[in-house]
Design a protein around this nucleic acid. Structure first.
Lengths: 95, 95
DNA sequence: TTATATGATAACATATTTGTTATCGTTAGT
DNA sequence: ACTAACGATAACAAATATGTTATCATATAA
């Protein structure tokens, strides 16, 4: 019987990526997740957000599907019309 | 008499950049400022932080002097050894 | 003065993101 | 069946960040 893993199991496999790498991946998943959530909660399509932010729809799609890692100014431009921004916080600022 | 402006006066000049552009610049200044502060408060040199983060010293120098705009994974790698991370927050999370 | 460590920067190669334009498959509604 | 809107993606050009190596000017200390 073939063993199939979930995505998070795959990503957290010790032998596949280093702990630091896994930490970075989880960070990005959470960050991008919040970004998608924010857009959907506003009821905006990618095309509408593209219009509002100045970031093109294909770029937004690539970000949301994690094909690329955004620069902070791109993330800022996308988040801003959604009412969010980026902040540096202590690691122990729990949840 | 020639009129000389401060940097922030220059950056906030209505006729030089759009409000959105100015907002983005101020955002980056504040973000990078916190990053530099965090490194200095830890008493680390750019070379030491380079060692800890895996981001090369010239790259860190370019970020700190705002010659380049980091990608979020680069910023994450630099902030992490300093005890900080990046978070998405509502714009009205004052200060 | 000499030595050492610092941040900044030059020069170039490499990697990656973003723009641009177009189109695809899918879903929802008519 | 048709239409419209959606997110995803292909293909390529352009812009930008990062790696790499070396060096610079400055400050600090011996």
């Amino acid at each position: 019987m073939k063993q199939v893993k979930t995505f998070s199991e795959y990503m957290n496999d010790e032998e596949r990526v280093s702990p630091a790498e896994r930490e970075k991946i989880n960070f990005e998943i959470e960050l991008i997740g919040k970004m998608v959530e924010a857009r959907e909660q506003k009821g905006l399509s990618q095309r509408e957000l593209a219009e509002l932010s100045g970031v093109k729809q294909p770029a937004i799609a690539r970000l949301e599907s994690m094909k690329t890692t955004p620069q902070i100014d791109t993330l800022f431009k996308v988040l801003n019309p959604l009412g969010y921004t980026i902040s540096i916080v202590p690691i122990n600022a729990k949840k």
